[in-house]
Structures are given as structure tokens and as C-alpha cells.
């Protein structure tokens, strides 16, 4: 094993020279971050583990080119994101059909206005959701809701709303018109908001 006193720079040098223990010590503190980023894009699949493995090999291969201009964790995270996006492009998406998720949260009357507005409970995001987020109680609900989304909507939501990509960058990466990206993003947001509202108001697991 490498000594505990080794700095990250020492570990990078040793790992680049083929020291697998140093590579483990270098990557382990950031492994949860790397895996989490990949899992958000690919979901709970064997693909996520394969993509992480590919990403770790790429990180090792590119270590001699790491110049220390950014933090190692940020540099490695970018490689993990690229690996996940490459995996996403290559995998067969048999079920990735545009499903008719609602664009709006009804019910509506014939004129398109809300019905039963007096009885409609209002989801106080700022209050109730904040408490649940603090207690870590929304993660499972959100992961399940993300898994419900078609891949084409999930990727847009994750890149735009979770990874903070610019709309133009998402459109360029997915080779879509910005209008199509906005529509997919809206469908994803509508479904996620519905699931979160059900969870917050109904207390469902």
C-alpha cells in the first residue's frame, strides 16, 4: 500500500507510472462522486458499472496529461461524464419512444382551465420539499421518477437541470434544435413534478 502521507500529486505520479495501489488511493475519495454522475445519466444499470470502469481506465491512461490546472476530482468527473455519454450513445434504446407524458398538470375543464381549484392542495415546494430534501427523503423518489422517463428526456433533464449545461450545449451534444430540447425538458419536468408532488402530499414511499 502507499503511505498515508503521500500528496495527491505524489499519487498521480505513482499511478501514472503503473502503481495500481496509488491509483486506488487517488481515485477512492472521489469514487462516489464519479459513480453518482454516471448513474444519473445511465440509471441503475449494469451500464453504469461498465461506464465507470471505462472512465477509470481513461483516467489512468490520461494521467500523464493531467496538468493540475483544475482539481483532480473535477478533471476526473469530466472524463466520467464523457464515458457515460458515450455509453448512452452506443447502447440500444429499444424502449426509447416519445411517450405522451402530460405537458401540464391537470385536471382541466373543456376550456383548458383548472377544475376544483378550491379543493386542490397546493404543493408548497419551498416548505415541504425543503424539509424532505434536508432529510434525504426525496432521493429514492427522484431516482424512480428519473427511471420512468424515456432516455431522451432523462438526458436533457440531467444535463440541463442537474449538471447545469447551457441549453445550446445540450442541443449541440444531442444534435437537436433548441425547441426540441425545451419540449423534452418540459415533459421531464412535468413528470418529475407530478411524482414529487404525489410524494410530498401523499407521503408515498
Amino acid at each position: 500500500m502507499t503511505e498515508a502521507s503521500l500528496t495527491e500529486t505524489d499519487l498521480i505520479q505513482r499511478a501514472a507510472q503503473g502503481d495500481s495501489d496509488a491509483f486506488g488511493d487517488l481515485v477512492r475519495p472521489h469514487l462516489a462522486l464519479f459513480h453518482n454522475g454516471i448513474q444519473r445519466i445511465l440509471g441503475n444499470s449494469a451500464d453504469a458499472q461498465d461506464a465507470l470502469q471505462d472512465a477509470l481506465l481513461s483516467i489512468h491512461k490520461d494521467l500523464p496529461r493531467f496538468e493540475g490546472r483544475s482539481r483532480f476530482s473535477s478533471w476526473g468527473y469530466k472524463i466520467c461524464m464523457n464515458s457515460a455519454l458515450m455509453f448512452r450513445r452506443s447502447r440500444v434504446r429499444i424502449q426509447d419512444m416519445e411517450r405522451p407524458e402530460p405537458l401540464a398538470l391537470g385536471p382541466f375543464d373543456a376550456a383548458g382551465h383548472h377544475t376544483e381549484t378550491d379543493r386542490r392542495p397546493e404543493w408548497q415546494v419551498e416548505a415541504q420539499a425543503h424539509d424532505l430534501v434536508e432529510r434525504g427523503e426525496l432521493r429514492d423518489c427522484l431516482m424512480r421518477a428519473l427511471d420512468e422517463l424515456p432516455d431522451s428526456q432523462r438526458i436533457v433533464f440531467v444535463l440541463k437541470d442537474v449538471e447545469d449545461w447551457e441549453m445550446e450545449d445540450v442541443a449541440r451534444h444531442l444534435q437537436l434544435a433548441p425547441g426540441a430540447v425545451r419540449q423534452r425538458l418540459h415533459r421531464a419536468r412535468a413528470l418529475l413534478q407530478t411524482r414529487l408532488r404525489d410524494h410530498v402530499l401523499g407521503g408515498r414511499p
Binding site: 462516489a32 462522486l33 459513480h35 453518482n36 454522475g37 444519473r40 415546494v125 419551498e126 420539499a129 430534501v133 434525504g136 426525496l138 432521493r139 427522484l142 431516482m143 433533464f157 437541470d161 442537474v162 447545469d164 419536468r189 418529475l192 413534478q193 414529487l196
Partner: peptide
């Protein structure tokens, strides 16, 4: 609120 909720809930 959704991006904030998602980021906070889906952090590593």
C-alpha cells in the same frame, strides 16, 4: 425549484 431539489437530492 426542481433543479435545486434534484441537485440536492441526487448529490453523491
Amino acid at each position: 425549484a426542481l433543479p435545486w431539489v434534484a441537485k440536492a437530492s441526487l448529490k453523491a
